[in-house]
């Protein structure tokens, strides 16, 4: 996954992208065990630290929401987190000052650090009426997903087996065809086809054929989305880096 030329090529892993965007991607990895695939998934969800507002000092809150409700909403706003720039536990101050009648948006947060900014500007925090005002100072802290969901960089991260579809014969002409729903990515003679292309129904692609569908061993199709705090590439390489760091730590602990 790393963009360094030797990392993917030297290993026996083979990565193919099916869909690739900055915040959403699908890719196939061959040559990994189910345990390792799950390790990567869990690292993406719980182990890659992201910035999120954790402490709020309320200067004035005359809105209809309680301070702690405002605090929760501010905490869930994703903040950009360039990997390697901050240590876990390090904090950045943000402030918000909006007077009604107006709506306070996540984009109204002013950060003291250029690297840490709200990645989505249009999230309404609270609607303020005449004479209502919200002024807060907030500390964003770098934390891991295992401590709070607001620190999860990966959203709906999952994987499925790659499935191989082969035609084994023709269906009896008078048999009623049953739908054969499959989700994910199939392999047909080495070609990768996302099931969206035929509306997830194999009958659409192979009418009148008898099919054999089997899981391809050690080939997993990952679906990764991020909350915008970093790109998919950064998230995946950070997750793999965290697994590597754990392994190194273990090796050190085992050596006497």
């Amino acid at each position: 996954m790393s963009t360094e030329p030797n990392s993917v090529a030297d290993a026996e892993y083979d990565v193919t992208f099916i869909e690739r965007g900055p915040e959403r991607a699908r890719f196939l990895i061959r040559g990994i065990t189910p345990a390792f695939a799950n390790g990567i998934r869990r690292a993406m969800v719980a182990d890659v630290p992201t910035m999120a507002i954790d402490t709020v000092r309320v200067v004035e809150n005359s809105s209809v929401m309680f301070d702690e409700q405002i605090g929760l909403r501010l905490g869930l706003v994703p903040l950009s987190t360039p990997p390697g720039e901050f240590e876990v536990g390090e904090s950045v101050t943000l402030s918000l000052d909006v007077s009604g009648p107006d709506t306070a948006y996540s984009g109204d947060l002013v950060s003291a650090e250029d690297l840490v900014q709200p990645t989505v500007d249009g999230v309404p925090i609270i609607d303020l009426k005449e004479d209502q005002r919200l002024e807060v100072e907030a500390e964003a802290v770098l934390g891991r997903g295992e401590s709070h969901a607001k620190h999860q960089g990966g959203i709906a991260v999952g994987y499925r087996h790659l499935q191989r579809v082969e035609e084994v014969g023709d269906l009896d002409a008078y048999d009623a065809e049953e739908s054969h729903v499959l989700r994910g990515v199939i392999e047909e003679d080495g070609e990768l086809i996302a099931t969206e292309e035929f509306d997830h129904d194999l009958r659409e692609r192979y009418p009148g054929k008898e099919l054999a569908v089997e899981d391809v061993p050690d080939a997993f199709v990952f679906h990764v989305e991020t909350d915008g705090s970093m790109t998919v590439e950064e998230l995946v390489s950070e997750a793999i880096g965290s697994l590597e760091a754990r392994a190194a730590e273990l090796r050190e602990a085992v050596q006497l």
Binding site: M65, L76, S106, I155
Partner: peptide, 20 residues
């Protein structure tokens, strides 16, 4: 009250779409 900032189940940010 106000639209939740994130989806309760998957955690994806949805609040910015509400006004639209």
């Amino acid at each position: 009250m106000m639209i939740p900032v994130r989806c309760f189940t998957c955690g994806s940010v949805v609040g910015q779409h509400w006004e639209d």
